[in-house]
Design a binder for these strands. Structure first.
Lengths: 351, 351
DNA sequence: TTTATTTACGCAAACGTTCCCGAATTTAGC
DNA sequence: GCTAAATTCGGGAACGTTTGCGTAAATAAA
């Protein structure tokens, strides 16, 4: 069921040349006469010659393709990143193979093995929320496979990384809530071990302290590793609502968590923001169309993708081993809308 | 910058065997003694042997990877399809290479060439809204490359296809609007040449006729090939609003168009559904959280992905050329919410 | 015992490239 | 004129597999 390909040998035979000459002619080597080059190029075009990339890969020991693994494609944040990655990869002649872990460490392992076994030239990684064991990445990195981490990075591997300023983003969101008069601010956040979780929690705490508010650990809730964010957000919300001293605002730190919280609030007819304010990290393009329009912290996902792939290509195409690594930090952009409007009491005061 | 791989030859030398014996042992050939097999397997595991897929591909002339091209990844409908594709591909040992055309015929061509040049075993295609020239697909198909079209299919290529029942879905949506008392129903739809556009328009017309309403062509609007759906939806809406006899309902036939219309209506403070009802094809998971909750026609995207890849694998793994092709039709599911609630007058009448 | 058959393995070609060497021919240097 | 240096090309190995064919040893059949 395979369609027969035209090879370099076909050209050679047709023109009475050797395969080496044809190969060199096609690659515009200086040691081939212009006349021969012309003949080869012309004939190659006429029979629609296409080099076999598999053979080239085998010979060159590289594939001009890179792998990217994210937790899930159907998440605007990640698909935007992928768009960014693809946009520059294509220009540079690289193919990108996309894989998703679906927040499963096992599946992540399997996908990575699949990718590396396909001799990709480099790897772009945002780890799943379930991965604790990072030896696989360490091994690959040590073996010389170029890796760039983005978003959810693993701390103790020394390579290029690109993240957003999660701490500042979380700080801004929290400070905004405080300014608007909210006092009991719950943090509905990701799995505890994740780099982004730590950073965002730090931002939350910093804002609270800065404004002289004490942090109630009962209001800080993490999701479970490997779990589904949306239903977990609902669980968390339910338990928060049972507190004798309920929160008056929610800060959710991911797309799915935010919509999960919103869904819960609407289902239970809890008015936003009067009874409960809501702000969340999100890259959805329709948060302003929600009811109410949602305050969010938006991450520069596309840009994150482009810088990550640029860093990776830098590693791949470097002549000698790179030892100087950097972590690029992008700014997150808070967008404040109705879901965090000033509290009733505050509104009165502000008049 | 490449990490040295462990090959079959390493195993052979270590065990004093030939590469052919090792190869056969690894593939569990019957002509290798169980004892030798045991030794080979054991040693292979101990040194973390991983077969080089590039070499296998070159030898086998197939790559165990398939390509999929969609208009854009960052669209819930397509990312769900991809999820479906991936879920069965992984199980069957296939890798899927994802590409997006971004509604550009040129980019589509380039991506397809890239995919095929990487000797993929098969191709999953939903064409861009800009493609008119389908000779590329015809050539590939004729050369024997297994192709399965999904969603936006090209009519005159005889191969497996999977679509949703666009006509029925559009019929349901339109009939629903009519039942709810809307009379001037505008159709904001995709590029004219697209298969899905024709089918959905046919459903719209059928519903209108069935209910004894005449179709006003001024209310049927198509987007331009290659354009951006959201801004175009806004344009279309603006021009519809300038009609002396305005529509009282909008039926948008894609995700982006629907949100584009919604955004326009909200920006111009047009009340939904009182001044204008809205229903649209959409696979967004948060349409019920919008303001107002949106009536939609949801497509079984994941299932579309799984059936498409199954069909493709059927073609790929078939021993002899397949000549009997089928088109699988999946049912779309309408979900009615507030954005198409009964018209004021109708509401009164219904009491 | 001899012959036929099976078992278990090695040799070498092939997949389509690239590139190191060597060699023939032409050109330059004197 | 002769040597040295370009110039232009071909031979063939290599990348890591798989597999057709050959063959020695072991076993079965006679």
């Amino acid at each position: 069921m395979r369609y027969e390909a035209v090879t370099i040998r076909d050209i050679a035979q047709a023109l009475g040349l050797s395969t080496s000459t044809v190969s060199r002619a096609l690659r515009d080597s200086h040691e081939i006469s212009t006349e021969t080059k012309r003949r080869v190029l012309e004939h190659a075009r006429s029979i629609h010659y296409q080099p076999n990339p598999i053979a080239v890969s085998l010979r060159e020991r590289k594939s001009r393709s890179i792998g990217i693994i994210v937790s899930e494609i159907a998440n605007r944040f990640f698909s935007e990143i992928i768009n960014g990655v693809e946009s520059v990869a294509i220009d540079r002649g690289y193919n990108v193979i996309i894989a998703q872990s679906l927040e499963s460490a096992e599946r992540e392992l399997r996908q990575i093995q699949f990718l590396t076994s396909r001799s990709i030239d480099g790897l772009l990684v945002s780890v799943s929320n379930e991965t604790e064991d990072t030896t696989l990445f360490k091994d690959l990195h040590q073996k010389g496979l170029p890796i760039v981490f983005f978003d959810r990075v693993v701390q103790d591997i020394d390579t290029h990384k690109v993240i957003v300023d999660n701490k500042l983003g979380a700080y801004d969101a929290t400070a905004h809530l405080i300014r608007k008069g909210y006092r009991r601010i719950a943090l509905v956040t990701n799995v505890e071990g994740l780099s982004i979780t730590k950073e965002r929690e730090a931002g939350y705490r910093a804002a609270m302290h800065k404004h002289g508010m004490l942090v109630d650990d009962a209001l800080i809730r993490h999701t479970r590793p490997g779990g589904q964010a949306e239903p977990e957000a609902a669980e968390i919300m339910a338990s928060l609502m049972e507190l004798e001293d309920r929160p008056d605002a929610i800060f959710a730190t991911s797309d799915r968590l935010t919509t999960g919280c919103l869904r819960f609030l609407k289902k239970n007819n809890i008015r936003i923001p009067d009874e409960m304010a809501l702000i969340g990290f999100s890259n959805s393009e329709i948060t302003e169309l929600l009811d109410p329009p949602l305050s969010i912290v938006r991450q520069p996902a596309f840009e994150m993708g482009t810088t990550a792939i640029r860093m990776l290509l830098e590693l791949i195409e470097s002549k000698r081993p790179v030892t100087q690594f950097r972590t690029q930090v992008l700014a997150a952009e808070p967008v404040f809308r109705e879901s965090t409007h000033a509290k009733d009491t505050e509104r009165v005061r502000q008049r």
